[in-house]
Structures are given as structure tokens and as C-alpha cells.
Design a protein around this nucleic acid. Structure first.
Length: 635
DNA sequence: CTTAGGAAACTTTTT
DNA sequence: GTTTCCTAAG
């Protein structure tokens, strides 16, 4: 017993050990950057299983990204040869709960619901607004309002929007139509995955009890970035458990723009009577970098009182921080490329040690071209980039529609690809006939002879493959491409780059082929893709990684570049007139700097290409604050 | 119902 | 510099 315990807790400091072993009451661990919070979380799970005899399936662990969940599960599995089945993100947990119990809601959803991504939602909203004679350009605004409402309020989303001050209130009709469309499509958007989870747990006491009794321990990572609905899920699952553990760092809260509430940490202390522990020792960065990070926090407002961490470290004062001011963006990207060359040649780093963290994704373009010119291998870590290619979305939408004839977003995307002479007029006739699904609507709609003929061919194809799509998506894809003449369509539509697009499609075909060999279904594939995070797409290959600061959350690199430190970019233009957004920008800068273990390269340019013309830029305010911590770069 | 051409808008950050 | 939106002609 003692032997096993000492092994499990090996390499932990006294504070970390205390946090790992404590289970007498709910516990809030405030853990600074690089203080080993993931280690504590993983050790806690291992400790529960190994030392306290807890069955692995009695533990629910919630992480911020799928990647973090996978890594945590893998570490536990390596240490104990047991895989806890309930390590996931909030969204993935919601899907699992809803696949089991969504029928409790008085709605027309069933457990085979599909998930709509941001693009699907936006298209649906756009269509609704066109029909209502509203500006489709404002669809993004409407989507944000709907999303916020879902995050903050529960079932009364539409009423809530109606009660908002004027411009926002006008979207209540859109919200209501959108809600109905999703229900008719048996589709949930990202917010619904969380909202409906709370609704299920609220609605039915027996089901709530079932889920409460399923877990003895609930552990939540990155608690500073939970939103209201997520907090509610925890409350509903917790019952009066003592085995609650939340870990977070208020200074790494960078998602309040999408509804997260760092104040949930304070609420957690009150609502659950949690005790508080801190981890303030940093193991990641050199002292030089940590001093700089602490300096950034000096400029922060102190609404957090004694929750503020004072990070310290035993690491050496070595490492390098440099700030390079450049004349323009070209010079800046060349500086980065040159620096990377010398890091490899002079200092012996690998490409994979290096990350370039950017505030806005458009900045990657210039960086990419400089790296390309210098033959530096790189990877841009992006969202669902591959699945955003038009041709991939087309074909995936076809498969989605073949699998689910209710899927409105998929139907409207593909019904006129390739052209069946069904444009907005015909589509609105079809919409009028919609009762149960879109095949039915298409059959009943009165169309011109030409449209009717094409529609019947379409219906025929869709119905033919409906029973095969789940098990044999590869076969269906190949047949489908032939039957609809998709390659010919591509050739006429995209005159210069259809070869690249066909290449992409062959990549998609490979994915489905592998899927078939693994015995996974098409629905499982869709779910996996829609719930994965940007971080899941980081390859382990030897390349420099370019990603946004947000995507770098929770990661670390020996060498970090943060370019474009200019007013209007970092901090971003949209945050300049708002104190709380400015605070968040500062935290984002803090998060960026604390990703670096050994070397940190900051840079800015006096002018930059924006919207195709050159604009003068002002140095970021942050550079001024931290001048003393930096040795100036070569001018 | 399409296509072409020109104007206008556009860039935070994402599960 | 690029994507999206709008309009007028086929």
C-alpha cells in the first residue's frame, strides 16, 4: 500500500500531493501556469483507482479539449492498465447523455440526432432571415445572440431574446424559426448539446438521480473557462457529493467572449462549500520568462484579491527574451524565419520545439510565405480546415443527407449541386411542402418538368444508398460521385484548381476507407469530427507550429514567437473601447508568454498590409510595460 | 435559373 | 488582397 502510494505520488511537491490526496470535501485548486495542474488531475484519478479502490467508471473527468481528454486517459491507462470511460469534454459528455435520454424532452428529437457545426447553423439562420426580408449579412449577429441566450438561459431562449433592448430583440423571430428548423432536422448545435443536457437533468428526477448515482467523483479542468450552462450541469450532477474537484486559473481565462465566467470559481467555493488550495510553483519556464509573466500581471486589475497567484520557480535565470521592432510586416516575418534558422543551426533546437502564436488567423499568411521561402517546414493548426473545403462539404453533406433525410442544412446545400435548375424559387416551394422530411417535400412539391425529372433522379440516388451509408460510406461515396457526375461539375465550376479539389476528395475517400476497415460507422465519424478541437489536429511531425493564442491553451514549447504586437492587433481593435475585453487581452498575452519554456521572441512592425493597403501601426501597450524584462533585439 | 461583372465589405479569438 | 453580395443580361 505504502509502496504503491509512494510510486504514484513520486515527483509531486507537497502542495501537489495534498491536492491529489484530498477528498474530504469539494476542492477548488487554483493552479498557475506551468504549476503541474494536469499532473495533479491525472494523479488524482490514478490515486482514486489505485489507493481508494474506486472503480474507474465511477469517475467523471471533464477537460477543455478532446486532446486533453485523450492524453489524460492515456496516462492513466499507462500507469494502471485501466481506462476510465468517462474522461471527455463537456460537449462530448452532453452527447453521451443525450444519446441515452434526449427522449425525455417534449421535443421531436430522437437519440440518432445529428450535430450542426457553426457553418450549418449560419446557413440555416441566413436562409430564415432571407425569408423574413431581413439582411442576411446580419446572420452572424443573430447567431451570436442566439448562442449567448442559450448559454445563459435555459428553455425560455426565444422569450429572453424578445425581452432584450431593441436591435437584439428583433431576432427573437429568427431564434424561434431556427429552433423549429433544428428540431425538424433532428439536429443539435453546439450550444444545444449543453443546454439540452441541463434540461434533461432538470426535467426528470429519476433520470437526474440515475446520472448522479453513476459517478462518485467529478473532476473538472480549466474551470475558469466554464460558462453558466456548464456550471449548471455540474450542479445537477453533483447532488451532495463530496468528491468534487475543480482546477483553474483566473488569469488564464480567455474565453469570456463566448460566455465563460471565471467567477464560477468563486461560485464554486460558495455553492459547494469547497475548500481552496493553490499551486504557485512553476516548473515550465526559466526565471527570466516567469519574471516577465509576473510583470504582465502587475498591470492587471485586482478584482481577485487573495486569489491572485504569485508564481515562483527554482529554474535558472537563463533563457532568452527578445523584442524586435521591424519597419514592416515583411521584415518581421523574415526576422522570424532567420531566427528559426539560427535556433536550429546554432542552438540545436528542432522545428517541433518552436511555436508561433498569433492573435488573428490572417497573420498566418505572411508568416507562411516567409517560412516557405526559407524551406522551413510548418503546420498551421486550424479548425476543421479540411472539412471546410467546398467540395468536401458538398460530398459530406450528400452522405449526411443520405443518412438522415431530415437534415435541412445538408439538403439545401446539395439539392442544386450539380445544377438541377432548383434555385431559390423552387426551394421555397419545396419548403412549403415540408412535413416530415425533405424527400417527402421534394416528392410532393409542384415543379417544372425539367426540375421534376432531375429531382426524381436525385431522390432515387438518395433512397438507394440510405441503408448502406452507415456501414459502407466509402462505397457510397465512390458510387455517388459517379452517379451525380461530381467531377465534371468540379471541372466546370473551378477552372484552374479542380485538380487540387479532386486530390482532396481522394483524401476523403481514404478516410472513409480506413473507417470501413476499423468497423466504425458514418455517424461515429461525423461525431468524432465535430467534437474534436483544434489541438487534435496538431501533428507530432518535425515542423514549426503556427496557431492562435487561444489554440495554444494548455500547451508548452521550448521556443515561442508572438508577432504583431501592435495596438489594434494585440490588443485587438474590437477590445480597445471596453475595459473587460482589454483585461482579457492582457490575460491572453500572459497565456502566450507562459507557453514558453526557454526562449520567447516578441516582435512588432511599424507598418503592415491590411485590406490590401499599407497601414501605419503603433507598438502594443504591453511592450512598454515589460521593457525592463527584455533585452532589446538587434535594431 | 444561371452567369458575369463590379461593388462592398471584410478580420478577433472556438467547443 | 480576397471573399461575398448585388444586379442586369442571357
Amino acid at each position: 500500500m505504502i509502496k504503491g502510494e509512494s510510486m504514484l505520488l513520486d515527483g509531486l511537491n507537497p502542495q501537489q500531493k495534498e491536492a491529489v490526496k484530498y477528498f474530504d470535501s469539494p476542492l477548488l485548486l487554483i493552479a498557475g501556469a506551468g504549476s503541474g495542474k494536469t499532473k495533479v488531475l491525472t494523479s488524482k484519478i490514478a490515486y482514486l483507482i489505485k489507493e481508494r479502490g474506486t472503480r474507474a467508471n465511477r469517475i467523471l473527468a471533464i477537460t477543455f479539449t478532446k486532446k486533453a481528454a485523450n492524453e489524460m486517459a492515456e496516462r492513466v491507462r499507462k500507469a494502471l492498465s485501466v481506462s476510465p470511460p468517462w474522461i471527455s469534454t463537456f460537449h462530448a459528455f452532453g452527447v453521451r447523455l443525450l444519446r441515452e435520454d434526449i427522449s425525455v424532452l417534449d421535443k421531436n428529437f430522437d437519440r440518432k440526432f445529428v450535430i450542426y457545426d457553426a457553418d450549418d447553423s449560419l446557413k440555416i439562420i441566413k436562409g430564415i432571415m432571407k425569408r423574413l426580408n431581413m439582411k442576411p449579412k446580419d446572420a452572424g449577429i443573430a447567431k451570436d445572440i442566439i448562442s449567448k441566450a442559450k448559454q445563459e438561459h435555459r428553455a425560455d431562449m426565444v422569450d429572453y431574446i424578445r425581452s432584450l433592448p431593441f436591435p437584439a430583440s428583433s431576432y427573437s423571430v429568427v431564434a424561434d424559426e431556427y429552433r423549429k428548423d433544428l428540431e425538424k432536422s433532428n439536429a443539435l448545435d453546439y450550444d444545444d448539446l449543453l443546454l439540452f443536457t441541463t434540461e434533461v437533468l432538470f426535467k426528470d428526477a429519476l433520470i437526474r438521480q440515475k446520472w448522479q448515482q453513476r459517478f462518485d467523483y467529478i473532476l473538472i479542468d480549466e474551470f475558469q473557462d466554464t460558462n453558466d450552462v456548464q456550471y449548471q450541469i455540474i450542479q445537477l450532477l453533483a447532488g451532495n457529493k463530496k468528491g468534487l474537484f475543480a482546477v483553474g486559473d483566473p488569469f488564464q481565462s480567455i474565453y469570456s467572449w463566448r460566455g465563460s465566467k471565471p467567477s464560477n470559481m468563486l461560485r464554486f467555493l460558495e455553492d459547494f462549500g469547497a475548500i481552496e488550495m493553490k499551486l504557485e510553483k512553476n516548473y515550465r519556464s526559466t526565471k527570466k520568462i516567469l519574471n516577465l509573466a509576473n510583470k504582465i500581471l502587475c498591470g492587471a486589475g485586482d478584482m481577485w484579491g487573495d486569489k491572485i497567484l504569485k508564481l515562483h520557480t527554482d529554474n535558472e535565470l537563463d533563457g532568452e527574451i527578445e523584442n524586435k521592432e521591424n519597419e514592416n510586416d515583411i521584415e518581421e516575418t523574415n526576422y522570424i524565419a532567420d531566427k528559426i534558422r539560427s535556433l536550429l543551426n546554432v542552438h540545436g533546437y528542432y522545428y517541433s520545439d518552436i511555436a508561433i502564436l498569433i492573435r488573428m488567423s490572417f497573420l498566418s499568411r505572411g508568416i507562411e510565405s516567409a517560412l516557405m521561402k526559407n524551406n522551413i517546414p510548418y503546420q498551421v493548426v486550424r479548425g476543421l480546415a479540411f472539412y471546410e473545403h467546398a467540395e468536401i462539404r458538398d460530398l459530406v453533406s450528400y452522405l449526411r443527407f443520405i443518412a438522415n433525410h431530415k437534415d435541412k442544412a445538408a439538403f439545401e446545400r446539395i439539392i442544386n449541386i450539380p445544377s438541377r435548375y432548383i434555385g431559390s424559387k423552387a426551394l421555397s416551394i419545396i419548403r412549403d411542402h415540408h412535413k416530415t422530411d425533405w424527400i417527402q417535400a421534394l416528392k410532393e412539391a409542384k415543379l417544372s418538368p425539367r426540375q421534376r425529372l432531375n429531382s426524381d433522379i436525385f431522390i432515387n440516388i438518395v433512397e438507394k444508398y440510405s441503408d448502406m451509408i452507415e456501414g459502407a460510406p466509402f462505397m457510397v461515396l465512390m458510387e455517388l460521385i459517379k452517379e451525380i457526375g461530381y467531377f465534371d461539375y468540379l471541372k466546370s465550376e473551378y477552372k484552374d484548381d479542380h485538380d487540387d479539389r479532386i486530390e482532396n476528395i481522394s483524401e476523403l475517400a481514404n478516410v472513409f476507407k480506413n473507417l470501413e476497415t476499423e468497423g466504425k460507422t458514418f455517424s461515429e465519424f461525423m461525431e468524432d469530427n465535430l467534437l474534436s478541437s483544434e489541438q487534435d489536429r496538431i501533428g507530432s511531425d518535425r515542423s514549426v507550429k503556427i496557431m492562435t493564442l487561444h489554440a495554444a491553451k494548455g500547451l508548452e514549447f521550448p521556443v515561442v514567437f508572438i508577432p504583431a504586437l501592435e495596438e489594434g492587433i494585440f490588443p485587438s481593435a474590437k477590445s480597445l473601447d471596453n475595459l473587460s475585453s482589454l483585461e482579457e487581452e492582457r490575460r491572453l498575452f500572459y497565456v502566450g508568454c507562459t507557453r514558453a519554456k526557454e526562449r520567447l521572441y516578441l516582435s512588432s512592425a511599424e507598418s503592415r498590409m491590411k485590406f490590401g493597403s499599407i497601414s501605419p501601426m503603433l507598438e502594443s501597450r504591453y511592450l512598454d510595460e515589460i521593457k525592463e524584462e527584455i533585452q532589446a533585439g538587434v535594431p
